[in-house]
Amino acid sequence: MGEPVRKSLQAAQEQVLQWVTFHLDNETYGVNVMAVKEVLRHTQIAPVPGAPDYVLGIINIRGTVISVINTRRRFGLQDQEPTDNTRIVIIEVGKHVVGIMVDSVAEVVYLRQSEIETSPSVGKDDGARFIQGVCNKNDELLILVEFEKLLSQDELEELSQS
């Protein structure tokens, strides 16, 4: 194998990924920037009667109806009244677009692939299934969330219910 080839391989492994970080309770979470469409301030959410309890309701974004997920409830946290910092992050998961409500959105961080560690086995905690990995940066633990799993899980549950 030639030297340049090895180098480019290494570079591919060291691919830098960008993550949007947000807070829920006291933890910091990250979601891949490629999945994030936009971040909105908290607006009025129209509740849908009869909807599953982790769905807060629907909002109107320029004519498109988008469901908003109660991320706190999804992650097994207590509900909290929305504050000034509350944001709705619109993410694209597969073909669906959903909004997730978070306590606040912080920043975009750059992480190398090598910095991401697989998550420690947390047992059968409700949130654990959606965690893609963790990253220790500046003495702060960043939990990387994979929403694709979160949603497919929802769909599975819905299917099993019906």
Binding site: P49, A51, V55, I58, T64, I66, H96, V97, S162
Partner: peptide, 18 residues
């Protein structure tokens, strides 16, 4: 407007509109 995959099939709700 369809309610989206997550809320699709919620009983009694045909859709939403603006």
């Amino acid at each position: 407007k369809p309610l989206g995959r997550m809320l699709h099939g919620t009983p009694g709700m045909a859709g939403a509109t603006i």
